[in-house]
Nucleic acid binder design. Structure first.
Length: 572
DNA sequence: GCCGTTTTCGGCCCGACTGTTTTCAGTCG
């Protein structure tokens, strides 16, 4: 059983307990435990009950339940609750305005079991008579049901959110009342997907900001408009929240609005322990403000150094900030080379020349050309002959570029038994071999583990490309024993890739952490199929930062000279 | 249900907005 599966069961139990009117703190305990399991890189299914009990947020009771879940594949409490609260019922919580209390009322009073029931009842005007409901809410519910049928709310890619954020910020900048402006929330924490955008502004006249905000051309609906907070929904379905605070509160509000929620809760507990109160207006001792203008001052007043937003997930960053041991996170400028690019030789859209020119413009000092190997017929993968032709072209280009090195590489297919798509004598002539899985991604976890370890054992393989194979929103990650992969990779000196394509971002943040902990080096690569895609490197850097990665953990932060010392380059 | 250098019991983050309340509950972030 995978960690994500265990976490899902615990989350569902939490949701169902909430619907049944359970103690809020018991509900939270299940959600906290789910998060703790989700963040574990090691397989919880392989842990003893004692080891599970030691995970923060999991006590004796939940450790026992999780152990039961692992050994029997089922949790009695979950099964029992599922009889009453179906998945269809839980799904009602996605309708704005419907929380646990109201859903419980709908079940008890109208025997609602799903969206269809709810829609019928609302159309028949049966909701408005019930305490806690009214005609307005009835209409809103019907409107939401109609809208989300054609366009279900989904999280969008960070890269997509970036475009919306840029145009919205440009729109707001025109408002003179705004003194400071930041996009906060999960966007500022650089999460791989974004559920909604949170905008924070400091202004003396909040009404002027609100007016400008709701006038953003892409707005389809204003769902809330108050003195300090407004919310809109764009035609795309994306929700945007705006909060306006006085300048003296901007830092506290930025911290509050950046989250994450568990991080905030932890901060507030620390404040409480010190006899202070932390809210979005500042850090207070009684009536007097202790800090608030900048984030740095708020953190400092709590005895912490400033924490980069990417780390604010309550995964140990607060403890690290307290002891002065936060990592010095990698930045885009640390990258000296790119080790995964494609050209027209296979499925890239531009020539090697154009790719190298752009890499050079991006400040890179070396770039590996890694077109696909022969098995990927769809991409016209390279065999011995065509790889040879490419070698000649690279040889010619090398004479034109003095300030950027062109490495001969390949993105080599890992076949389903773990053997490689090209023979060793060819691979040995290359400077950089990234081996990737491109088919049979849903292999049995044991077979996939064997497949990957066998590839890693090959001396010529330098890195594993997009190791989990997931595509955000479209394809689940392959299942395998990541800890075992890391153990072998460490033995063989094989690196793991962080592929920067916005829908891959593979490895994930927690897997980056696991790789770092086990002493396996990483590479951040663009996997660029066109010159523009070198810009994707920024997304890979975001992911690495969320995984606590420092420049020294990443091979392609090294200058070419020390990069070569690691493994002599065959053709340079 | 978790947790503990005040504690093994009694706490558990904090505030804005909406709708329906006639003084506040529920939802949301």
């Amino acid at each position: 059983m995978q960690n994500t599966e265990i976490a899902k069961v615990l989350d569902e139990v939490g949701d169902m307990l909430e619907l049944s009117g359970e103690n809020f703190f018991r509900v939270r305990a299940y959600h906290n435990a789910a998060r703790a399991i989700h963040d574990q890189s090691a397989a919880v299914a392989k842990m003893t009950r004692d080891e599970i009990d030691k995970i923060p947020g999991i006590g004796a009771d939940l450790a026992g339940k999780i152990a039961t879940l692992i050994t029997t594949g089922e949790l009695p409490l979950h099964r029992e609750l599922s009889r009453k609260f179906t998945g269809e019922l839980l799904e009602l919580r996605t309708i704005p305005g419907l929380g646990p209390k109201r859903i419980k009322t709908l079940i008890d009073r109208l025997h609602i079991r799903n969206r269809a029931d709810l829609e019928r009842a609302a159309k028949a005007g049966k909701l408005r008579g019930i305490k806690g409901f009214g005609q307005t809410m009835e209409e809103k519910i019907l409107e939401t049901i109609a809208r989300t049928e054609s366009q279900p709310a989904r999280r969008i890619l960070y890269s997509e959110a970036e475009e919306v954020a840029a145009s919205l910020v440009a729109h707001l900048r025109a408002c003179r009342a705004i003194e400071q402006l930041e996009v906060a929330g999960s966007f500022r924490r650089r999460r791989e997907t974004i559920g909604d955008l949170d905008i924070l502004a400091a202004a003396s006249n909040s009404q002027a900001v609100m007016d400008r905000f709701v006038a953003f051309p892409a707005v389809s609906e204003v769902s809330a408009k108050g003195d300090t907070r407004s919310a809109v929904v764009l035609r795309s379905g994306l929700q945007i929240d705006l909060r306006v605070v006085p300048r003296a509160s901007f830092g506290a509000a930025l911290a509050y609005f950046t989250g994450s929620k568990p991080h905030n809760i932890h901060l507030r507990r620390i404040a409480q322990d010190r006899g202070l109160l932390l809210n979005e207006y500042g850090l207070f001792r009684g009536e007097s403000i202790v800090a608030g203008r900048t984030e740095e001052r708020v953190y400092r007043a709590l005895g912490l150094s400033w924490i980069p937003p990417e780390l604010r997930e309550d995964r140990g960053e607060i403890e690290a900030a307290a002891s002065g041991s936060l990592p010095k996170l990698i930045t885009r400028d640390d990258l000296k080379g790119d080790l995964h690019t494609h050209s027209t030789y296979t499925d890239g859209r531009n020539s090697i020349l154009e790719m190298v020119q752009k890499a050079r413009e991006c400040g890179l000092r070396y770039v590996a050309v890694t077109d696909h190997s022969r098995r990927l017929a769809m991409a016209h993968g390279l065999d011995r002959t065509r790889l040879h032709e490419q070698a000649h072209e690279i040889e010619r280009l090398r004479t034109q570029f003095k300030d950027i090195a062109i490495l001969r590489g390949i993105e080599l297919d890992i076949l389903d038994d773990g053997s490689l798509d090209l023979p060793d004598d060819i691979l040995a002539q290359l400077d950089w071999v990234v081996a990737s899985v491109h088919y049979k991604l849903d292999q049995d976890p044991r077979e996939m583990t064997r497949r990957l370890t066998k590839a890693i054992r090959n001396r010529n393989v330098d890195a594993i490309g997009h190791p989990t194979g997931r595509l955000l929103g479209r394809r689940e990650a392959s299942r395998f024993e990541f800890d075992e992969i890391l153990r072998v990779a460490r033995e063989e000196g094989c690196a793991m890739e962080i592929d920067s394509q916005p829908d891959r971002l593979d490895l994930t943040d927690t897997l980056c952490m696991a790789a770092k902990r086990s002493g396996v080096k990483l590479v951040v690569t663009s996997d660029a199929h066109s010159p523009r895609e070198f810009e994707f490197l920024a997304y890979g850097i975001n992911q690495a930062r969320r995984g606590w990665i420092e420049a020294r953990d990443i091979l392609n932060t090294r200058p070419l000279k020390s990069f070569r010392e690691r493994r002599p380059l065959a053709s340079l």
